[in-house]
Design a binder for these strands. Structure first.
Length: 520
RNA sequence: GGCCCUAUCGACUAAGGGUUAGGUCGCAACCCUCUCAAGGUUGAAAUACGAGUUCGAAUCUCGUUGGGGCUACCA
């Protein structure tokens, strides 16, 4: 068996930051490529200079790197798109704007074979036709029905065509759809699809005005030249698939045509439409992997900046539209590579759910390496942690980390371990600091100060014995103690807190609270 | 409007002709308990609708309806 190495590409357009749907497409491409032992290629489809957004390409690469989905080809080790061919990058350049010189010949080839024609209608003329049609509640389409009444090499004299080709500068090359054709296609996710070519329009393949191809031509030519074997892309491309099939045929490349798989789209949480840039800030969650600041200064939040671990982000994205067929939900990237299959990708659109996303991160936070979490906690709260060693911080985090979804929530949950409460929750004070309690606490404090060894087990024993012996209320005493140690009436077990902060600090906090509350 | 895709709990999904339609998130209750979490147990919660095929349909077919995409000299 000498099966050829599979080549799978992700081909985003740098028209803005890559959103999470795009990352998911990249991820599925990556998983598929790696599973079959193939190469994952990144190609930048920047054929529309009008929509070019500075920084978008860098953003795409950084987002992929953050997620750990690294291209084998197209991008070098430093994260730059490769511009010159080499052994590792034989098909460079990988940016279509740098490949512009190669496309025209393919477009001309189609004209000479009779599969395409020159069209001289200006965009203004076409816009006017569309507007006129719309006024009559019709839709204007440049297709087999209208092309013979328009200005193109099918209707103009050869001399006129040549004259316009050399003298004018805004003509295009259009694909000539054969309306008789029935296009039979196969999709790895959706199965067999049949489309009647008479419903297709004559798409522009090449534009003289910018000396550039459109997506359709560039995409097919590059996939062919780069020997791409599998195309996994968003569902928005499904309507173009017949055109792409026809293009492969017209070039005579049908035998090496790649396999196609069209992924369903990520939908808004409320199910109305596909997830878009605006939704995040409107609905309170990020739609982008990384923070993005537009040229106008508009800021969109990112999963990274919101405190998600890339592993969690990748995991949740993988499970949005794919499942392993088992009940396992937590996967590392290598595990995903192992388990992934296009057959198990679901066909219908997936709505994004913020709660589930947070749950994924919580699971990863729990599983976080202890030393890494300590370092992370230190980095996040350096100003509060001088004088506390890793052993102390580790003990605090062991006790508290399962309460958080994100590392940045940890400080709010643990601050009382590092500094005495600044205030005492008033409602809790009113609830507990009354009746016999003020008289009891000084005695509890005295006993605690004499306790040795001062650990959880002995503290529990002492407190329990003292409270039962005196006939006090367990709840009142314990909750008051917690109020004094934490500042409010929630948190971990009283003895857990005492063991960590130690005997001296415990005594200090209790006495201080008694003093303050008695003075009121 | 036309073309294409799609349809199981609120959300993500499993079940590929025979299951009490399963799991996860979320929600609720109970247990644990010094509070709050976590954890444990339990519960509410779905095959869009209508025909057909079949002994038998969530599953196959057709239609309807809903949702989504595309319909640019954008990708």
């Amino acid at each position: 068996m000498t099966e050829k190495k599979r080549r799978v590409r992700f081909a985003p357009s740098p028209t803005g930051p890559l959103h999470m749907g795009g990352v998911r497409t990249a991820l599925y491409n990556y998983l598929y490529a790696k599973q079959v032992g193939g190469d994952f290629i990144l190609r930048i489809e920047d054929t529309d200079s009008n929509r070019f957004v500075p920084g978008a390409e860098e953003y795409i690469i950084e987002a992929l790197r953050w997620c750990g989905i690294l291209p084998d080809e197209g991008v070098d080790a430093e994260g730059h798109v490769v511009e010159t061919p080499s052994e590792k990058h034989p098909h460079a350049p990988y940016r279509q704007s740098q490949r512009r010189h190669i496309y025209r010949k393919y477009a001309e080839e189609l004209v000479s074979k009779g599969f395409a024609y020159y069209a001289f209608d200006s965009s203004e003329e076409l816009a006017a036709l569309r507007a006129a049609a719309e006024a009559e509640k019709r839709t204007f389409t440049y297709n087999h029905e209208t092309r013979l009444s328009l200005k193109n090499s099918l209707t103009l004299s050869p001399e006129e065509v040549v004259r316009r080709l050399v003298e004018t500068n805004d003509w295009t090359i259009r694909f000539k759809i054969n309306p008789e054709r029935l296009v039979e296609m196969d999709d790895l996710i959706r199965g067999h699809i049949t489309v009647n070519a008479c419903t297709l329009d004559d798409k522009v393949l090449w534009k003289k005005a910018d000396e550039l191809p459109t997506y359709h031509l560039a995409n097919i030519v590059d996939d062919h030249l780069m020997e791409v074997t599998d195309v996994i892309r968003g569902e928005e491309w499904l309507p173009s698939l017949p055109l792409h099939y026809l293009l492969y045929e017209a070039f005579g490349w049908q035998d090496t045509r790649p396999n196609f798989a069209h992924l369903s789209l990520l939908l808004k949480p409320d199910g109305k439409g596909k997830l878009s840039k605006r939704d995040g800030d409107k609905m309170g969650f990020p739609v982008f992997p990384l923070r993005w600041v537009s040229a106008e200064g508009e800021v969109s939040r990112g999963y990274r900046e919101d405190g998600y671990y890339p592993e969690a982000f990748v995991n949740l994205l993988a499970m949005l539209g794919w499942n392993p067929g088992t009940e396992q939900e937590l996967f590392t990237l290598p595990e995903l590579v192992e388990a992934f299959s296009l057959e198990r990708v679901v066909k219908s659109g997936a709505r994004f759910n913020f709660d589930k996303a947070k749950w994924f991160n919580q699971e990863y936070l729990r599983r976080r390496d202890r030393a890494e979490l300590i370092a992370e906690f230190r980095a996040l709260n350096a100003e509060h942690l001088e004088g506390f060693n890793d052993e102390y911080i580790g003990a605090v985090l062991d006790l508290m980390k399962e309460r958080a979804h994100f590392a940045h929530e940890l400080w709010g949950l643990t601050a009382f371990f590092f500094e005495p409460p600044k205030t005492y929750d008033e409602a809790s004070v009113a609830k507990f600091w009354k009746e016999e309690v003020p008289a009891i606490l000084p005695e509890v404090s005295r006993f605690l100060k004499g306790l040795k060894p001062f650990d959880k087990e002995h503290i529990d024993e002492l407190l329990h014995d003292l409270i039962t012996f005196r006939g006090w209320s367990m709840g009142k005493v314990m909750n008051t103690l917690r109020l004094f140690l934490v500042g409010e009436s929630k948190g971990p077990g009283v003895s857990d807190i005492m063991q960590i902060i130690g005997r001296d600090e415990t005594g200090f906090r209790i006495d201080r609270a008694i003093r303050i509350l008695n003075a009121k």
